[in-house]
Amino acid sequence: MQQNRTLFLIEVAIFSAFAFVLDIIPFLSFKVWPQGGSVSFAMIPIFIIAFRWGTKGGLLAGFLYAILQMTLGTPYILNWAQALLDYPIAFTVLGFAGVMSPAVQGSLKAGTTKRFVGMVTIGVLIGIILRFVAHFLSGIIFFGSVLEVGDWYYSLWYNGSYLLPAFIINVIAVAFLFHKRPKLVAGNEKKTA
């Protein structure tokens, strides 16, 4: 048990660092908007942790990634509510992809590829939809506070414009990676057994 806990902490830490690295390397991310919001592989490590260790791991990895972004990256802070929604909350909720973790691991073990891809898609979708909700709300606050033209569809359009491609890319990438290397998701499963 102890062994697993230490491994858990380290994996979460390294993969959060990974998420941060993937976001800042040129060519590995595509900035859609200058003020944050890029299509990149950065969310993949979070999803990997979420599928490996379940929701708890995913939430923790997401939160840590948000802290890294806020302390090392270039956070875009206008006011407190917006900062909270855009960083800690938005990235932490990605971890809810982990609710599909048992289903993903089960179908991977059973070798049912179609079901497996479906489960991964649902998991990633859950994470990204929740993240979208967080950014969407913060967008309403942003457009509402800075401009007086504030309306919900600005936020919808702005956040959707990078999160929709990000969703497609992440589903493809995560499913493909897991398919090629089942060990990525099932690694710790063997350990407990």
Binding site: L9, I10, V12, A13, I14, S16, A17, F18, F20, V21, L22, I24, I25, F27, L28, L60, L64, I67, L68, L72
Partner: peptide, 25 residues
């Protein structure tokens, strides 16, 4: 304690991971 440990591991590994990624690229 766990959180501080994870934060320092993450900070420690960012330069390493950057280097490695560059190498693979």
């Amino acid at each position: 304690e766990d959180f501080a440990l994870m934060l320092s591991i993450a900070l420690r590994f960012i330069p390493n991971l950057l280097d490695e990624t560059q190498k693979v690229m």
